[in-house]
Amino acid sequence: MGNTQIEFRNVSFRYQEDMPWVLKDVSFTIYNNEWVAMIGHNGSGKSTIAKLMNGLLFPQEGEILVDGQPVTASTVWDIRRKVGMVFQNPDNQFVGTTVRDDVAFGMENHGMARDLMLERITESLEAVGMNGYERHEPHRLSGGQKQRVAIASVLAVSPQYIILDEATAMLDPKGRKEIMETIREVQSARDLSLITITHDLLEVTQADRVIVMNKGEIWMEGTPRELFAKKEQLIEIGLDTPFVSKLADELKDAGLPLTREPLNHQELLEELWTFHSTR
């Protein structure tokens, strides 16, 4: 595994001296080539974690290491090359006057050659289904389309880590599924790590690991299956469980013995089949 990971070591953070701590003693590691979903109620500190990861903020206590390198004012430019990020609001991260200029912005900052930029623009816009919009100005795009462009922009610079902070919130379910599939493909092709901050439970079930934030602390860290086994507690901290998970509960209450916590329709169906054939 070596050093290709993001590590939070006892990180505490607050925005100002006289304000309450937003993150309290947070420690976790994001390993190479994995997909970690981060969930938590509004204001639980998810976006703050994302901003700490690429040096937009610095912690008052603790340490953050990217590939073994501590995030400090002197390493921050190296780190931002490795850690790409898409923010919640797609409008206020659109820098270029057209789609094409915006996708190029990050590459221009990194001093990429023009030919390579042109190639990457075509590739990444295709990946998010926005080819043909190259010359469009941002005010002629919908929220979801702007989010697609923002994702294309981060794919274009090809970072080692991609953080998506509710970056697909404005997409329709089909679009979201397609984009997540594209990102997964890119992830396995390029060996990168993916950190998605989301309120979408379906997305959570697909991740390798989940980190649940509650009031600035890590409430739980584990696989999606482990997470949805704790339904009651999840609801207590203001989160929901997926429909399949709820249905499985009802079935259990109705007397059907399910052997494991199903994460999607397919798994529930298999459970039901097994039950049916062994009866």
């Binding site: 690429n54 430019w77 206020n92 991260q93």
Partner: peptide, 19 residues
């Protein structure tokens, strides 16, 4: 916007290429 520009590696005109 300033934060997003920084996150995307903007650090002034030095060493920048242009599309």
């Amino acid at each position: 916007l300033a934060m997003a520009m920084e996150a995307r590696g903007y650090q002034g005109g030095e060493g920048r290429t242009k599309l």
